[in-house]
């Protein structure tokens, strides 16, 4: 007995292309939202998380160790809820670290991999995702449903927040942009893309509870480090270093502003 039932195939390019003409902007937007909802049923970010889990548990590096004993702030081996409390201060490194920075620390400390190798390819492409992206997808998915809770209970955390806030409003570059140019006014958008007001709790929550995310337009999982990197590219700035204090400070400002938001990542974006 063979029963062929309903199949739901996700096709993206055609959908977006056909929605561009003969519709009002509201209709176009509604269509995009509908499409996004449909995709949430099967977010390909889960495929990244599956690979990330395998990588996380695999013995690797000169020390032939897995990352399972990595301490993301709640003790070695604890993954549940850790992303919702990052960036955070780590006494062993004396630094405020985001998830991606902490992963590098663990690769160096536990697996004996050099920092150079651990940071060689932070961002991948659709054909070849980076290991960083896969590990991130796995770990953030362990914080699903947990409220964002960043505490400025340490001078370094306070410093990261204060510097991050100033980075957010710092105008420079040939186009005079700051993060606030696009992310400080309600109900604005670039082309059809809505822009969250990241300096307000509501906007910061909307963003920080849904990143990292799978981006349908380029079939890739994108991390928070990437999000900030690509914003600076579009702001026409020079490039921020991967897991640098500045990127972590900006993330700390955004995450603290998003405190209380319930984490729903990895998300899915246009």
């Amino acid at each position: 007995m063979r029963k062929s039932l309903t199949t739901l195939a996700v096709a993206c390019a055609a959908f977006l292309a056909t929605s561009a003409f003969g519709q009002t902007p509201e209709e176009v937007k509604k269509g995009v939202e509908q499409y996004r909802e449909m995709l949430e049923l099967g977010n390909p970010a889960e495929l990244y998380a599956l690979k990330g889990e395998a990588l996380f548990k695999k013995k690797r590096g000169p020390k032939n160790a897995s990352l399972e004993q990595c301490d993301f702030g709640k003790g070695p081996g604890v993954l549940k809820g850790v992303y919702a409390e990052m960036p955070r201060y780590f006494a062993d490194t004396g630094k405020v670290q985001d998830l991606e920075s902490r992963l590098v620390t663990c690769m160096v400390q536990l697996q004996g991999i050099s920092e150079k190798d651990a940071t060689k390819r932070p961002f991948g492409n659709a054909d070849k995702p980076s290991e960083n992206e896969q590990l991130v997808a796995y770990i953030v998915s362990q914080s699903y449903g947990d409220p964002i809770n960043i505490k400025l209970d340490n001078p370094k955390m306070k410093e990261a927040y204060e510097i991050g806030k100033r980075l957010f409003f710092y105008r420079a570059g040939p186009w005079d942009f700051s993060c606030a140019t696009c992310h400080a006014e309600e109900n604005t958008r670039i082309r059809l893309q809505d822009l969250p007001v990241l300096s307000s709790p509501a906007g910061a929550k909307a963003a920080m509870t849904t990143w990292p995310a799978y981006r349908v337009s380029n079939s890739q999982l994108k991390t928070m480090e990437w999000r900030i990197n690509d914003c600076y590219r579009q702001m026409r700035f020079p490039e921020p270093n991967f897991i640098s204090d500045s990127v972590i400070a900006l993330t700390t400002y955004l995450a603290y502003t998003a405190n209380g938001g319930v984490y729903k990542g990895p998300g899915i974006k246009r």
Binding site: I163, R166, L167, A172, P238, E239, S244, S246, V247
Partner: peptide, 24 residues
């Protein structure tokens, strides 16, 4: 903090292609 922002950026950013450090 106001004074430090620029120092942080100069330490944490690098020139890439036509996007030179003087843009900061």
């Amino acid at each position: 903090y106001d004074a430090e922002v620029v120092q942080w950026m100069k330490r944490d950013f690098h020139a890439r292609g036509i996007a030179t450090m003087d843009r900061l």
